[in-house]
């Protein structure tokens, strides 16, 4: 069961996107790329890679160019028009992104409660995530009182709990134990057995996912390049 009025995401496209700052820094220059349902892609290049995910999530507005979902320019939509797409776009933060005045469990419950999902359903979905990442003992703590990795897991868990069709993950594996990464991978694989799940990751550590079929992109002078790197197998995963 999915809550909220959602629109299936059939394609995400960045068309001739430029991203520049007032001080002259060019993050992206004429970038065009498309993602289909079920695709996995890694973007390498720290801040620039994060910006691509933020553009796709509608959290950043390009200086030039368009970000299209199902052929519709998301920056021509207002908040309410974009909402049915947004509920199927799950963005996880590298740093921050967790509400400091709410407990870890309240953070996970928030999207369900705000969008009017039944409380029993929300409790069940959130409990599944708390179990998955072993967050049960931290659930009643506020973010300031828990380790950084717990905050990050809560942020990822909050996104997974609402089962979006597209996962946009900003450096999800940094500072995480291999067994936690393995559980995250298993969760994604299980969901992929049910329906196509697009996974776009900004990270230099694609080796954790080396048994998946994915595309690696690098960014050089603002231009997107396809990288053909050898994939490594990591022992223990």
């Amino acid at each position: 069961m999915k809550f909220g009025n959602r629109v299936d995401i059939k394609e995400i496209e960045l068309r001739n996107v430029c991203l520049r700052e007032g001080n002259g820094v060019i993050w992206l220059d004429d970038v065009s790329v498309k993602f289909q349902p079920g695709q996995t892609a890694f973007f390498k290049g720290e801040q620039v890679a994060s910006n691509i995910l933020k553009l796709a999530a509608g959290l950043l507005t390009p200086t030039l160019g368009q970000v299209l979902i199902n052929g519709n320019d998301i920056h021509e939509m207002d908040f309410e028009e974009f909402l049915p797409y947004r509920l199927n776009l799950g963005y996880t933060f590298n740093l921050g992104g967790i509400l400091n005045n709410r407990t870890i469990k309240e953070n996970l419950m928030l999207p369900f409660l705000y969008h009017g999902a039944p409380i029993e359903f929300a409790e069940k979905e959130v409990q599944e995530i708390l179990d998955l990442f072993e967050l049960n003992r931290y659930q009643d703590y506020r973010p300031a009182g828990v380790p950084g990795v717990v905050r990050k897991l809560a942020c990822i868990g909050r996104t997974l709990a609402v089962t979006p069709q597209v996962l946009l993950m900003d450096d999800p594996t940094s500072s995480m134990k291999p067994n936690v990464v393995k559980r995250l991978k298993s969760w994604i694989e299980e969901r992929r057995e049910e329906a196509p799940l697009t996974v776009l990751v900004a990270s230099d550590h694609d080796e954790f996912f080396s048994d998946w079929n994915y595309q690696v992109y690098g960014i050089e002078n603002g231009r997107l390049k396809t990288l053909d790197e050898p994939r490594k197998k990591v022992a223990g995963l």
Partner: peptide, 25 residues
């Protein structure tokens, strides 16, 4: 100061990402 800190900690971005309009919430 609370809202300023929320911006610094990307909490307002997180609300948007969850489909929660910061203006209404």
């Amino acid at each position: 100061s609370e809202l300023g800190n929320m911006k610094v900690n990307r909490e307002t971005e997180a609300l948007e990402a969850m489909g929660i309009n910061p203006l209404s919430y």
